[in-house]
Amino acid sequence: MAKGSNQKLKIVYLIKILTEKTDEQHSITMNEIISELKAYGVNAERKSLYNDIENLRQYGLDIVGEQHDRTYYYYLVSRQFELAELKLLVDSVQSAKFITERKTNQLIKKIEGLASKYQASQLQHQVYVSGRVKTNNEKIYYNVDYIHTAIDRNSMISFQYFQWNVKKEKVLKKDGKPYEVSPWALSWDDENYYMVAVDSSDNKIKHFRVDKMLNINILDKPRQGEECFGEQNTDVAHYAKKLFGMYSGKEEIVKLECENKMAGVIIDRFGKDTMFIKKDEDHFTTNVKVILSNQFISWVFSLGNGVKIVGPDDVVEKVKSEVERLGKQYSD
């Protein structure tokens, strides 16, 4: 048999065919494999393909051959990602506000490439990107890369930061003067991407929306502020658990009185190691360490009668002040 123009790529195209054309519900015959290879400019004989498939099995590809009547059918079983995992990735990309619509579609297309064409069609059925709230800052991907690089190098960064005005125009904060901060982590909260950093001007932890950062530069200055994370020693995951909506504030140990039915809510928010102290047959108390902010107080309000802040006294007074403020705001 005459050699095809891409003969040296036979094994590569064989993997491509099995990956794209087959899965546990869809198989392919040897004749169809030969035909598909020919479309790529590769001529192949059955005997050589049997050897190639066996070599791929030894390499680690889970290729199954099943006989129906007198015909053998081949399909690829296990993949790097299961279909359920790919669906989860698609959902995550779609829901992320910090990923632009254009980049969302590009990423989903790449995710589809990890599945067979039949599985890819299932992924397409759950794609709803148009109309979702998405950032329009295409440079966010470079911003993320710069921040990660600075963290790896233990370096500070400078950048400009903007906000939107009522005319939907970008307005630079601090009149365009660059911020100089020490980045410690990136955190995904409320569908947005934030940089957790220490501002050297006042040595406080601050949060910056990555899609609102412009003109990032990595500075030839070592990072500062490790002590700001306290005993966790820059354990940002532990720190983020105390946050509500990425709002900064004073760290406090707050005592909550909860109805028993709210146990799951407390565990979901603060972790299973949170200690519960029985108050009576219907209530328990717990002490939680949080970054105290109006956002935290609003979270407690949202739980209705199920959770109540009972200490310390200064926090209770802050809650009363917030209730009074809201009453005035919505009074006639």
Rank of each mutant, 00 (worst) to 15 (best):
I218Y: 04
D220Q: 08
K221N: 13
K221G: 00
K221L: 12
P222F: 06
Q224R: 14
Q224V: 11
G225Y: 04
E227Y: 15
E227T: 15
F229C: 12
G230H: 05
E231M: 14
N233K: 08
T234A: 13
D235W: 06
V236A: 07
A237K: 15
H238T: 11
A240G: 06
K241T: 14
F244R: 04
F244V: 07
M246F: 10
Y247N: 01
Y247E: 10
Y247G: 01
S248P: 05
S248H: 02
G249T: 02
K250M: 12
K250C: 09
E251G: 05
I253K: 11
I253W: 00
V254D: 06
V254N: 05
K255E: 09
K255M: 13
E257G: 02
E257L: 15
M262F: 11
A263S: 11
G264P: 08
V265N: 14
I267S: 00
I267H: 02
I267E: 08
D268M: 06
R269H: 09
R269L: 00
F270P: 01
F270K: 03
G271N: 10
D273K: 14
D273R: 02
M275N: 08
M275V: 10
M275S: 03
K278E: 14
K278F: 05
K279G: 00
E281R: 08
H283R: 09
H283G: 00
F284C: 10
T285E: 14
T285A: 04
T286I: 11
T286R: 07
N287V: 10
N287R: 12
V288D: 01
K289E: 11
V290Y: 11
